[in-house]
Computed example of a mutant assay.
Amino acid sequence: LPPAMAMASAPRFIQHKKEAFWFYRFLSIVYDHVINPGHWTEDMRDDALEPADLHSRKLKVVDVGGGTGFTTLGIVRHVDPANVTLLDQSPHQLDKARQKEALKGVQIMEGDAEDLPFPTDTFDRYVSAG
Rank of each mutant, 00 (worst) to 15 (best):
A102N: 09
N83L: 02
A8M: 13
S28E: 04
Q15D: 15
A52C: 15
D95N: 06
E19Q: 12
I108Q: 10
E101R: 12
E110P: 00
D88Y: 05
P117I: 12
S90W: 09
E42V: 15
N83R: 12
P51G: 10
E42I: 15
H92T: 02
V106L: 12
V30I: 15
T71R: 00
D112T: 06
D124M: 09
N83F: 02
S28A: 15
H16Q: 14
I14R: 11
F21Q: 14
P91C: 09
T71P: 00
G66D: 07
A10K: 06
K18R: 08
V84F: 09
S128Y: 03
D80L: 10
S28N: 01
A129N: 13
V79N: 07
P119G: 09
K104H: 14
R12W: 01
S9C: 08
Q99N: 07
R98D: 03
R77I: 00
V34D: 03
A6P: 00
L103D: 02
A4K: 10
L87W: 05
I108E: 12
G69I: 10
E19H: 05
P11F: 08
V106S: 08
Q99K: 15
T41E: 10
T72N: 07
K18T: 03
F21M: 13
P11L: 11
A52L: 15
I108K: 11
G130E: 09
V76P: 09
P119E: 15
T71Y: 02
D112F: 13
L73F: 02
L87V: 08
P119V: 11
K58V: 00
E19F: 03
K100G: 02
K17I: 03
P117K: 10
P117Q: 10
S28H: 04
A48Y: 13
G66M: 01
T122L: 06
F123E: 06
D88L: 04
V34I: 15
S56G: 01
S90T: 04
G38H: 13
H16K: 14
P37W: 02
P37S: 05
G111M: 11
T85I: 04
H92I: 00
T72A: 11
V127D: 09
V30T: 12
T71H: 00
R25D: 07
A6T: 09
G74P: 05
G38R: 13
H16S: 13
T120W: 08
Q89R: 03
K17D: 14
P2K: 09
A129R: 03
T120N: 12
I108R: 11
E19T: 04
D124V: 05
T68Q: 04
L54K: 04
A82V: 14
A102C: 05
V127F: 05
V62W: 04
T68S: 14
S56R: 09
T85G: 06
D112C: 06
P51K: 05
G74S: 05
R25S: 08
K60F: 08
Q89P: 01
Y24C: 02
K18N: 06
L1S: 13
E114I: 03
R57V: 03
P119T: 12
H16G: 07
L73Q: 12
G65P: 06
F23K: 04
T68D: 06
V127A: 10
D88H: 04
A102F: 06
K60N: 05
S128H: 01
H78Y: 10
Y126S: 01
T41N: 09
D124S: 04
R12I: 06
V30D: 01
V61Q: 05
A20V: 01
M7K: 12
D63F: 06
T71W: 01
